[in-house]
Amino acid sequence: MSGHSNWPEWIYVAVVIALMAWVGAEAWEAERLVEHVPADAKTIIVTGQQWFWTFEHEDGTKEIGELHVEVGKAYKFEIVSTDVNHSFNIHDYVVLIDAIPGRVNTVWFAPDKVGEHDIQCREYCGLIHYNMRGTLYVTEPLS
C-alpha cells in the first residue's frame, strides 16, 4: 500500500458497506413490524410431535392435522413440542417458527382471504418428517 493510492478499492468497500447498512436497516424495520403482535390476537396453542400437529383454540376445542381460522381476525400461535424439534410453517402466509421442547415460541398472522393452505414441518424430525403436514382452512366468520 506504500506510496500507491488504492482509491478504487476504497470506494468499492465504501459502497459495499453502504449497501450492507441499507440491508440491515430495511431488515430491522421489517422485522420490527412483523414481530409486533396485535393486542386483540386470539391465541392458538400448537403442539408439534412426531409426526403431527395438534391445535388448541382459546375456547378449548382441539384439532389434529387441521386448523380452522376465520377471515379478518388476528391469531397468535404459541408453539410447543413434546418430543424433538419441529418447525411450524404455513408457507403461504410466511408463518414460521421452530417448536422446541421446553420452550414456547410465538408467531402471529391475520388471514385475509377464504382458502386452504398447507401446513408443514420444516425442521428435520425423523422418519416421517417429510409427511408431517396439515391443512389450514380459512373460513368466513360464523358469528
Binding site: 413490524l33 412483523v34 409486533h36 396485535p38 393486542a39 386483540d40 379478518g72 388476528a74 403461504d92 402466509y93 410466511v94 408463518v95 398472522f109 391475520a110 385475509d112
Partner: peptide
Amino acid sequence: DEPGKYLDRR
C-alpha cells in the same frame, strides 16, 4: 395499532 386492521406480513 388500530383494532381490526392488521399488518399483512406477507
